[in-house]
Design a protein around this nucleic acid. Structure first.
Lengths: 74, 74
DNA sequence: CTGTGACTCTAAGTCCGTA
DNA sequence: ATACGGACTTAGAGTCACA
């Protein structure tokens, strides 16, 4: 599975765990609502800056987020 | 300090620890030599795909790489 | 071996909307 | 609340010649 699809699945899992809507996460991370949707569906490859912006309101470290992705990669 | 500048410093540190030239790392990660240079000077914000491509030949996990960045951020 | 400017092309990311 | 599409602006991907 591609990196971006795995990224999207991890993002969705974490977001739903935190009981946040895409709209709420978009507002908190200062990103667009439709862009969060694109990311979760594996349609975009975020920059590390975007990753860090997303992690802040989700309450976990970027390294922890990537750790989740690595579980699927290797 | 901006994320991309920190990223560049971390990348350079790790690369030099591994005794690799930019040219060697470029070849191993299948990226362009001048692009490595841009990254190390903080002129680009890499996607997570680029980060993962760089980590493979450097022999560390992307999450470990981001851990180094977090040390400077927080 | 590396920095840099210039360049093209592609994708990131936004904003409007509809269902 | 989310998926999806179109149109759009900005910035990264990727390369080259030259210092």
């Amino acid at each position: 599975m591609s990196i971006e699809v795995i990224f999207g699945k991890v993002l969705r899992n974490i977001r739903e765990d935190k009981k946040l809507s895409q709209e709420q996460l978009a507002h908190l991370s200062e990103l667009d609502r439709t862009y969060i949707s694109l990311l979760e569906r594996g349609k975009r490859r975020p920059t590390i800056n975007t990753l860090i912006a997303l992690c802040k309101p989700l309450g976990l470290k970027p390294s922890e987020f990537l750790g989740e992705i690595e579980k699927e990669l290797y």
